[in-house]
Amino acid sequence: MDVFLAVAGSPDISDDVKRSYYQEYSGQLKALGVSLSQTSDIALIVAITGGSENEIMANARQYNIIVAWPHYNSLPSALEAAAALRDSGRYTKVIALSAPKAHLGDGVIKILRLMELIKAGTPRFGLIGSPNPWLVSSNMSLVTTDQITIDESLAGLDINAGLVDARLLLRGAVSSEYDERQIAPATAYARRLLDIARSRGWDGLTLGCWCFDIGSIKRRGWTPCISLALLNQMGMPAACEGDMRALYSMYVLSKLAGGPAWMSNVNYAEGDLLVLTHDGAPPAMAEEYSIVRRSITNAPAAIRARFPTGITVTLLRVSADLKKALLLKGITIEPERVEACATQIGVKLVVGTARDVIEAGLGNHLAFVLDDVYEEARDYLIHLGARVIP
């Protein structure tokens, strides 16, 4: 991730003053892992005083972050220039700091991720097999889809190639009903799917799972629940059951958060409380986890994850045409367990209500990340023309 850095001020501000601000913010950006580049199409412009408008305009790129503060008419100047840049079709965000040379904070990283997501355009997704038969509201019309069969995805699968990942997974678990050789097919399949996705240029994938297909489970002896959970941890958004809407939602959230997303069934929705369930989760998202039998079929294997409480969570579900999106924010709580999948997460909503979930009309699966990317997700969805609920 790189940006073009500039300092803008009124005409009477000396070069030495501008240089000191440049050194301050170049150091901050480098400490955040951001590189400086004269050729970047993203500009971070520090407006140090009023009267900076013309210099801001002169240094602007297609994507712009203007940094300002309450003193010396810095913020008024930034707001004026930002309006002009937006009028000219250039994407612009203003960061209002508390004081000159105040720290940018991690918020600038989320804005840069947002800009990179916008620049990426329409994602290319892989569909392996077909959506599971119970998914009647999972299609998307505005993504590029490349479809292969499940048999193609399994061709050449080397179980031994999954032993190292299986060993690591078991080492991190508090308990397991299976040994590494029983887990190895699922971990090897995760690596196999990652190779396929990279070779075919996919930005994410979804799999029509054989999790309830008794014949397939008897023939193969395992289910891909762990495979998909690990793929998200490897940086490849991967949704269960062939659900494209869940995949797109996970893709957006994971790109904005810079970490894994997951998806869940909505099993309880009342007032400001949700209980979400699924047979697995990326282990990196869990406070602790166990390897257990898959629900109903008792096949190997699922991840029973226990999520940390008191963490901000952002949740998303988009419509098929991206004209509507359910976007929620909450705090993780210990769930009141229900009779459902192995992994369960409780959410106390602070933006949105259970009523919004029920009445949005967008289907079942909610994608989520354990991070506050609500504002960035909202900006992205509005940029696409979506109506954000609530």
Rank of each mutant, 00 (worst) to 15 (best):
A81I: 02
A82I: 07
N54A: 13
P76Y: 14
G50R: 14
E55Y: 03
G51N: 10
S77M: 05
A60Y: 02
I66K: 05
E53M: 15
G50N: 10
S74G: 06
M57D: 05
E55D: 12
I66W: 11
A68S: 15
A83H: 09
A83G: 14
S52E: 04
A60C: 05
E80P: 00
I65N: 00
L85H: 09
G51S: 03
Q62F: 07
A78G: 03
I66H: 06
A78H: 04
A83T: 15
N73P: 00
E53H: 06
Q62G: 11
E55K: 09
L79E: 13
G50D: 08
E80V: 13
Y63A: 05
S74W: 03
L75P: 00
V67M: 09
T49C: 06
Q62C: 01
R86L: 14
L85A: 06
S52C: 03
G50L: 12
I56R: 13
I56F: 10
E55P: 01
H71C: 04
A83Q: 14
A47I: 01
S52P: 04
G51V: 02
E80M: 14
S52Q: 10
N54V: 01
G51T: 02
A68Y: 04
P76W: 12
A47V: 05
H71R: 15
N64H: 07
A47P: 00
A68E: 03
A78F: 09
R86M: 12
A84G: 09
E80Q: 14
M57W: 03
A81C: 04
P76D: 11
R86I: 06
A84C: 01
I56M: 09
V67P: 00
A84D: 11
V67S: 06
N59A: 15
G51D: 04
I56P: 01
S77L: 08
R86E: 12
Y63W: 09
A84V: 08
S74E: 03
E53Y: 08
A82S: 15
N54H: 10
G50S: 13
I56Q: 13
N64K: 13
N59W: 08
Y63M: 07
A81N: 09
R61K: 15
A82E: 14
A78Q: 04
G50Y: 05
P76G: 11
Q62I: 01
L75G: 03
S52L: 03
A58T: 02
G50K: 10
N59E: 10
N59H: 13
A58K: 15
L79W: 08
I66C: 05
A68L: 08
I48N: 12
A60L: 02
R61C: 09
Y63D: 01
M57P: 00
N73S: 10
N64P: 02
E53P: 05
A82Q: 14
Y63K: 09
P70V: 05
L85Y: 12
P70A: 14
A83W: 04
V67K: 06
W69Q: 13
I65V: 12
Q62V: 13
V67H: 02
G50T: 05
N73I: 02
V67R: 02
H71Y: 13
S52D: 01
A47L: 10
A83I: 11
A83D: 10
A84S: 12
I48M: 13
